[in-house]
Design a protein around this nucleic acid. Structure first.
Length: 153
DNA sequence: GCCAACGTTGGC
DNA sequence: GCCAACGTTGGC
């Protein structure tokens, strides 16, 4: 059982959108480190914190989702009309992967980035480190639990 | 909107 | 295989 932090710009797709849709294909990942983690380490049933990035005062952890389907070829890489087509990807050996995520819950309140920075137990989070740009990062169970606990305060 | 950090690209 | 240029990310 692994734990993750998955970030996204809420203008693009927010926790409210996931609440409405219940299950969503998490596509558009075009970073090799993230792809490798999806391929090698993401298992069905894993839990993930939903994090809103680039959202001003609303930046932070907003909810929980589960991995509903393990990595499979991301169809958007072959769609010229998608946001991130990759003409160099070979359909016989797709370069990019997607997973399905399922809505679990929306936090009663935002756990802001600033608040997470002030909590010692969360200092190991890669999301808090300068220059971190990975859209999906592994976290530890105590970190996951701490963020959930903060949301219930 | 600015800018620092980082990944990717492509010329050599 | 190096590295400068470029594009993107994301906090502020």
């Amino acid at each position: 059982m692994n734990y993750w932090l998955i970030k996204n710009e809420p203008d693009c797709y927010s926790v409210d959108d996931l609440k409405r849709d219940k299950v969503e294909m998490w596509d558009g990942v075009r970073n090799y480190q993230v792809r490798n983690m999806m391929r090698d380490d993401m298992k069905k049933g894993d839990l993930a914190i939903f994090y809103h990035s680039n959202a001003g005062k609303e930046t932070g952890a907003v909810g929980v989702m589960t991995i509903a389907k393990e990595a499979y070829p991301d169809p958007t890489q072959f769609d010229p009309k998608s946001e991130h087509p990759d003409p160099k990807s070979d359909p016989a050996n797709p370069r990019w992967l997607a997973v399905d995520v399922k809505y679990k819950k929306k936090f009663k309140r935002l756990v802001s980035l600033q608040e997470m920075k002030e909590v010692k137990a969360l200092h190991g989070l890669r999301i808090l480190q300068k220059g971190n740009r990975l859209s999906i990062t592994p976290i530890k169970k105590p970190e996951f639990d701490k963020i959930v606990a903060l949301s219930e305060k």
